[in-house]
Amino acid sequence: MQPFEYANPASVQEAVALLSPRWGQADVLAGGTDLISCMKEHLHTPKRVVNIKNIKELAGIQKTAGGLRIGALVTMDELANSADAKGEYKSLAEAAGGVPSPQIRHMGTVGGDLCQRPRCWYFRNGMGLLAMKDGKSLIPEGENRYHAIFGSGPAYFVSASSLGPALIALNAKVKLVGPKGPREVPVSAFFVAPKDEASREIALQPNEILTEILVPAGATHSATYEVRQKEALDWPLAAASVALTMKGATVGSARIVLGHVAATPWHAAAAEKLLVGKAINSANAEAAGKAAVGDAKPLSQNAYKVTLAKTAVKRALLDAVKKA
C-alpha cells in the first residue's frame, strides 16, 4: 500500500470538501473490504483516504411512510438481520445475507457493496477496466469464464454488487451528495457500462459520497437467488432478484433483474412482460427464465452462465411466492 493522508470527518459536508473533482486523488473508506485490497494491489493509490465511518447521519435503517431508508454505513450483516428488511424487502435481506463470509458481512457496508470495483481478473491484475490492447479488448478471446453474457462490449466485466439487482427490482434510488448538494439517482441509472478506460462503472462522481439508499414500498413478494460454486467464499456466478406485485393469485407487475452477468445489473424486461396476468408456477417460472436469457451472447468460455442465469430466475420466482 502506498502511504496516504487519512481524514476523519464528522459530517457529510466535511467529507465532501476533503474529496477531489478528479479520480485517483482521494478515496472514500467505509468497511474497507474492497478499497484496502485495491490499495494493496496499487489499483487505487489515493493521496488521501477519507474515512466516513464516524459520520453518524450515514448509519441506521429507518422505516418511513413510503418505504425503507438505509444509511450507507449499514453493514451487510445489519441489513441481512433487519426485521424491517426481512419482511417486506425479503429479496434485499437475502442478497445481503448471501455474502458467504461473516467477516465480510460484519465489515462491508451497503454503500460499499454498490461502489465496489469489478472482480474481473484482467482489471485486478492491472490491465484496466476494459482490458484493452491495441484498441481491442483481450476478454472475448481470453479467459472469460466469469465474464459477461449480456451487452455488446467494450465492457465485459460483471458488476460485483450483491444488492444492485435487488435494489433495481425494488425500484430503489440512491442519494449522492457532492459540493453542489444532494441528488437522487435511480439505482438502475447508478450502474453504467463504461465505454472507455477513463470512465467508471458507477454514476458517482469523484467528489461525491453515496449517503443513503431509498427503497419504496409496493412489491408484495420478492426473492433473490444466487448460484455459487459449491459453498465457495466467492461472488456468485449468476444471480436473479425478483419483485412482484401480486393481484390475488396472478402477477400484477413484475421486476426481474439479473446479477453477475453483465457490466451492470441486467434488467430482464422480456421475462417481466411474459408473467403479467399469470400465476407463478413451475412452468411459468421456467418460461420467464428462458425469456430472461433470450438475448444472451455468451463469450468463448461462459455459455454455462446462461443456464445458471435462467435457473436463478426460475428459482427466485418460485421462492418469492413460496409460503414461509
Binding site: 487519512y6 473508506l29 474497507g32 473490504t33 484496502i36 485490497s37 494493496k40 483516504v49 474515512n51 465511518k53 450483516d77 463470509s101 461473516p102 467477516q103 465480510i104 460484519h106 465489515m107 467464499l233
Partner: peptide, 27 residues
C-alpha cells in the same frame, strides 16, 4: 492472503469477527 479472503487474520472487534488485514489500525 492479506486480501480479506482466507480468514487466518481474524480477530473480534466490538463483538464481531473481522479480517484484521482489511482494517486500518488507525480505524
Amino acid at each position: 492472503c492479506d486480501r480479506g479472503t482466507c480468514g487466518a487474520c481474524t480477530v473480534i472487534m466490538n463483538g464481531k469477527s473481522v479480517y484484521s488485514c482489511t482494517v486500518l489500525a488507525i480505524d
